[in-house]
């Protein structure tokens, strides 16, 4: 993970801060400066919003062959989650067995360690999801 980029994205990764278009009302995650539908009409109308952190699993896969840094949790579940406000994001599902995950499952955001830059490097934190 790239540290300056991660640092810029902290508000999104820690607190699920995204955007809402003031023109059409659509929600976006991560943050956007311009609405892809309204283009120029959305300029200056994009608002910062904190998502509720609840949503449902749209699709998922069980990872058996992860990057070595993630092998402690093998096998684990990566899922596409649709937030209740609409936007979709990808996240690991924790605190449940892979066989218990199903499409449509209600989930909520939790704060976890995402990665660390070796034994001496910085630790990255942010959202993962767990059963609601």
């Amino acid at each position: 993970m790239n540290m300056p980029r991660f640092w810029r994205e902290i508000s999104g990764r820690y607190n699920l801060i995204g955007s809402r278009c003031g023109n059409c009302g659509e929600y976006f995650f991560p943050k956007r400066d311009i609405c892809p539908k309204c283009h120029r009409k959305s300029m200056g109308k994009m608002e910062s919003v904190k998502f509720s952190g609840t949503g449902k699993v749209i699709s998922y896969s069980i990872v058996h062959d992860p990057h070595p840094a993630y092998s402690d949790m093998r096998p684990y579940v990566m899922a596409i989650i649709e937030l209740d406000e609409g936007p979709k994001l990808t996240s690991q599902i924790v605190d449940c067995e892979p066989e218990d995950v199903h499409t449509g499952m209600r989930v909520k955001a939790t704060f976890r360690k995402l990665a660390e830059d070796g034994k001496e490097g910085v630790i990255f934190y942010g959202y993962k999801f767990k059963p609601e």
Partner: peptide, 16 residues
């Protein structure tokens, strides 16, 4: 703690 939990994640969850 789970491999992705530590004092920081526990403190954040408790504070939230």
């Amino acid at each position: 703690p789970s491999p992705d939990e530590d004092v920081i994640t526990i403190s954040v969850e408790a504070a939230r």
